[in-house]
Design a protein around this nucleic acid. Structure first.
Lengths: 193, 193
DNA sequence: CGAAAATTTGACATGACTCAACTGGAGTGG
DNA sequence: CCACTCCAGTTGAGTCATGTCAAATTTTCG
């Protein structure tokens, strides 16, 4: 039963009754995604909230020069959704790509609205999720405007140590906003010091 | 009646009944804040959601070297709150300072919880507010990691034209993550081109 | 195994910061 | 209303951070 990690996740925020658990089981659909496959591409409307049960994803933008810029990673027990597109129902500018063979649970908008109507707990749960995401985003903005690339890299490793041997440096560089070459020299410098 | 702008604001998201309007009037407290005064300082716990009725604020962090970094501005009909501190009830790392003599409406956490319990609309309204803030934050992160300072400045002017003659370039530089000197050379370059 | 991608290295170019000095305008107190 | 101060804005020289491009090497995965 793939919904177990999700229910555990919800219950850390707010305990659920048996009935609520079965609502969750009905609302979320399991899906397997192979490495290098996409669950969202530029121009699509983001139709689901996606919860990662197993595997790893990145969400990124491609600029006018064709360069990719990672907005977010997601591994087990993380969410990955272009909320802008999800809520506005406008075409996304983002891609979500599986970096490993993965399993996710997806919630369609109609089903989310049903959750919200049926039960005030889910309203609160999703509010808290969004709040937490906003707090992280604010932290990241402050860091981007106040620190050097080296400081950002060290902080990234401290904050997400489980990413260290799982996500390539190319991807990390793109998340930090530096070139892979420069990240390489940073790493070199750190080792020597 | 200072609550009118706020009620208008809410009604753009979701129409309110008369009863709901009076709930709003009771829950929010008016407060005047003079230029250079603070409604939040590092170490405080952020006790209110703040809605700006008139005036202008900035929210910023001070780094180890004593430099200030602006996370956000707020003018009429904007919100300015350290949500991290507000929800976790932990001491804030941020300052919120009035850049002009201002009038705000503030909502204490207890009163917000009452709104949430009483009425599902407010639950939804605050969820939408947070979602919108998250979408902007994501846009800003992507821009920070993908654009030069000049591009960020031009985009800032396009997106917030009303800030142009209201917020000093020192403050804008701090928001963009560059020094005031460098912003000055950027502006010079733009004029010449 | 073989192709494609990741990582590293180095030379060079540009973006952005630091520091110091100068200018001009806005507020303040006499 | 003036003199004064303080702060925002500008300028320039020198320096450091980071990007670009090209090439060589290593790793990964199909």
């Amino acid at each position: 039963m793939t919904t177990k990690p999700l229910i555990d996740y919800f219950e850390k925020l707010l305990p659920l009754g048996e009935e609520e658990k079965s609502i969750v089981k009905e609302a979320f659909k399991e899906r397997r995604v192979k490495r290098r496959h996409f669950i969202l591409q530029k121009g699509d409307i983001c139709k689901h909230h996606t919860f990662v049960v197993e595997g790893c994803f990145r969400m990124y933008m491609v600029d006018e020069k064709g360069k990719e810029h990672n907005l977010q990673f997601a591994i087990e027990n993380w969410w990955i959704t272009d909320i802008g597109s999800f809520y506005s129902e406008e075409p996304s500018r983002l891609y979500i790509e599986a970096l490993e063979n993965s399993t996710v649970l997806q919630l369609r908008k109609e089903d989310q609205l049903k959750l919200f109507d049926d039960n005030i707990k889910f309203n609160r749960i999703f509010r808290v999720l969004t709040e937490n995401a906003l707090v992280s985003a604010h932290r990241r903005i402050l860091q981007n405007i106040s620190s050097t690339a080296e400081e950002r890299y060290l902080d990234f490793l401290k904050r997400y140590p489980h990413f260290f041997n799982r996500i390539s440096n190319v991807q990390i560089a793109s998340y930090l906003g530096v070139t892979p070459e420069f990240l390489s020299t940073i790493r070199n410098k750190i080792v020597k010091s």
